[in-house]
């Protein structure tokens, strides 16, 4: 099953962290939205998110979905980027014992998944310890 269109549509977010800011109330959205859930505003300006932040919570996935099996065990977390936007992603290149709330992270470009042996390769952001 090809999901090229769905993947392609998300490229500005997955590759470049493009987000938007409500011109009325300043709320930031990643991914971009049509209506501001804070104030109902409909005007936005495009912003690029900072590529550094800190870990808010984390886990280690021991049993993963089938397309992630070769990567298990892998760490995942929710990160708050400088600027306040939060996102979920994998934490790469980390010793699991070093995982802690508040860990400084930066974003790296990685392959996230493959659509089978013959399908497209799907890239995007992962977190790595910033040290």
């Amino acid at each position: 099953m090809s999901t090229s269109a769905k993947y392609w549509r998300g490229i500005p977010q997955r590759y470049r962290l493009e987000a938007e800011k409500c011109t009325d109330c300043g709320a930031q959205f990643f991914p971009p939205r049509v209506v501001c859930s804070g104030c109902g505003g409909r005007e936005f300006e495009e912003i690029k998110l900072d590529d550094r932040g800190k870990l808010l919570t984390y886990t280690v996935i021991r049993v993963g979905p089938s397309e992630f099996c070769e990567q298990t065990p892998y760490a995942m977390g929710i990160v708050e980027l400088e600027g306040g936007v939060r996102m979920t992603g994998q934490i790469a290149d980390v010793d699991f014992d070093d995982l802690e709330v508040g860990l400084p992270i930066k974003i790296e470009f990685r392959k996230i998944r493959e659509e089978g042996e013959a399908g497209i390769l799907c890239y995007g952001y992962k977190f790595v310890p910033d040290k």
Binding site: E70, Q90, A92, E108, F109, R110, K111, L121, Y123
Partner: peptide, 16 residues
């Protein structure tokens, strides 16, 4: 390389 690293991902990071 880790399973999530390939020529494309390394090129992007080196280019950054």
């Amino acid at each position: 390389p880790s399973p999530d690293q390939d020529v494309i991902t390394m090129s992007v990071e080196a280019t950054k």
